[in-house]
């Protein structure tokens, strides 16, 4: 999706607040929202669907509202979509349902176990051999899917070199549509001068993790 979330290389954004106070949460509601997202979700959401729901927020809101506010809107929208909540309930702030069995409270020990259990793996065994080896030259495709994708706009149609092969991983584009398909995943390195017209011979590189179907072999 060619949305405002795809920010790499966009110009006009100002200085970074380098003096931000180093605390995990800057307001109570941020911590509450983070915590809700850790323990309340619909069983058939995928991480990629959740990211896509966030990308679909109105672009002006996406850029202007606080970060964890976008998590609230993402969670609310995704819950409405999957049927756990209704728009009326969220607007009236009243549940229409008969209270279900309450979840048992979790204590700190349970939380640490839960954090460890969130070490979700995305690598999968597949039969297909990787199409590329480390050192191969590739071109990224000029893909413009309407749905969620992880090929950033700034890296479309660019020459790169395979830096590492990570095995096959769950393909984000399909996962965002509810389908689990695995593809070989590579770290691809791009010279700054191939990405940015003003970079010239600057000695910088950008490394991007890209699935095989984002790539074509470079023509000799």
């Amino acid at each position: 999706m060619d949305g405002v979330h795809d920010l790499g290389g966009k110009q006009g954004f100002g200085p970074i607040d380098v003096d931000e106070v180093e605390v995990p949460f800057h307001a109570d509601w941020e911590g509450r929202m983070w915590a809700i997202a850790q323990c309340a979700r619909s069983p058939d959401w995928t991480i990629d669907w959740w990211r896509h729901v966030r990308e679909l927020i109105d672009p002006v809101d996406y850029l202007s509202r606080p970060y964890f506010d976008s998590w609230a809107q993402t969670h609310i929208a995704a819950f409405i979509d999957s049927g756990e909540l209704t728009l009326d309930e969220i607007v009236s702030n009243q549940s229409a349902a008969i209270p279900a069995n309450q979840q048992p409270s979790q204590d700190n020990e349970d939380i640490f176990a839960a954090i460890e259990a969130q070490a979700y793996r995305f690598d999968r065994e597949i039969e297909a051999q990787p199409a590329y080896r480390v050192g191969d030259r590739v071109f990224t495709r000029q893909l413009l899917p309407r749905h969620h994708t992880r090929l950033p706009a700034y890296a479309r149609g660019k020459p790169g070199v395979i830096h590492a092969h990570h095995g096959a991983h769950v393909f984000a584009d399909a996962s965002a549509q509810g389908n689990e398909i695995a593809q070989h995943l590579y770290s691809v390195v791009f010279e700054a001068g191939d990405l940015w017209i003003e970079a010239g011979n600057r000695k910088d590189r950008v490394f991007i993790d890209l699935w095989e179907s984002y790539l074509d072999p470079a023509q000799d």
Partner: peptide
């Protein structure tokens, strides 16, 4: 209200 989360659990996560 819907029994999908528990406030004490939220506290523990924070």
């Amino acid at each position: 209200e819907k029994g999908l989360v528990d406030s004490a659990t939220i506290d523990a996560w924070v």
